[in-house]
Design a binder for these strands. Structure first.
Lengths: 176, 176
DNA sequence: CCTATCATGTAATCCGTTACATGATTAT
DNA sequence: ATAATCATGTAACGGATTACATGATAGG
């Protein structure tokens, strides 16, 4: 029951357990893949180590199977639910940085056209996937996941816009 | 002269040294702050350790002052220049993820309105700073840094759009 | 002069990635 | 049956963040 810093990874695990009720690391991995993994992916090993960390802090409880695969099933404790709620009700003012590898190459002088073509391909694919997911989950009440998806689509479109312009002439605003 | 993996941080150091000719870690820190730090920031300690790593790999050379502050000045070796050029001429297809803390809270069910207001404030400020920088550096030939800045502006605007909508009604597309 | 801040650097910690390893299932 | 893939987990490594620490410079 020791004190530790809660990272984004921690809140992802807490949040997913809150959705799922209880889950094994492997189930968490599956849930991540089909939901939040689209804009915040995790290494599967983290889904084994992070719940242990959280258990050490008393935020989740463990229960290990005794027969067959001795899976570990985790669920939130009330302390865990509190921690999650506290985090959710304190709007963050943190901002993410772009930290985009392609942008890094562009910054340091890579030839814009071929770079733009490569980036355009992957961003178009990703955008298509986002839009497919959105249409698929055409639920009326806009849930958190759906809103996040909309954000992803917006940024995907922005990337496509940006790299498209560069792919044409190797520059923005050809003349204007 | 051992083999090591080159990370984005490595290329940032290589790229900056290529710009600057030579630099001490502290100078690197300053350059980062006024240029690439806007969309890919580094801990200052990394600007001390990373050049050492690169020196061990023979990509940069070190020269230490003997008097006063015994600063270390780094510069690219020809191997370093080659590594940088190789990286720049192989357009990456990697994509960054959003990995945005605010989006994470939204995903997991935070109340959209207060969150949107908090995010809007910081994104507006950041956007204003980007635009100021762009106007300030109104150089005709669009350099890599300038193009990167344009990307930052595009995404900044997208964030402002997104959070603005949420700030109003707590939802997107109020009715449509 | 003294103190606060800037400049410069090292050390410790820790999270995240990568690699390794093995027990179940499914396909052929 | 046997190979291949899926499921499940641990261990090792390394880069990034955080904390610590001290030498210079400027301001009062």
């Amino acid at each position: 029951m020791q004190d530790l810093r809660l990272t984004p990874t921690s809140y992802i695990v807490l949040g997913l357990l809150n959705f799922a009720g209880e889950a094994t690391p492997y189930q968490l991995k599956q849930i991540v893949g089909s939901s939040i993994g689209n804009f915040w992916s995790l290494q599967h090993a983290q889904l084994y180590s992070e719940p242990e960390r959280l258990a050490a802090a008393g935020l989740v409880s463990v229960e290990q199977e005794h027969e067959g695969r001795r899976r570990k099933r985790y669920r939130l404790t009330s302390a865990g639910r509190d921690a999650l709620r506290a985090w959710l009700s304190a709007p963050t003012s943190e901002m993410s940085e772009l930290r985009d590898p392609g942008l890094l190459q562009l910054f340091f002088g890579a030839d814009p056209k071929p770079l733009a073509e490569a980036q355009l391909a992957v961003h178009r694919a990703k955008l298509a996937e986002y839009e497919r997911l959105r249409d698929l989950a055409a639920t009326r009440p806009s849930s958190g996941p759906l809103l996040a998806l909309e954000a992803g689509i917006g940024h995907g479109r922005e990337w496509v816009r940006f790299w498209s312009k560069l792919a044409k002439t190797g520059d923005l605003e050809p003349d204007a």
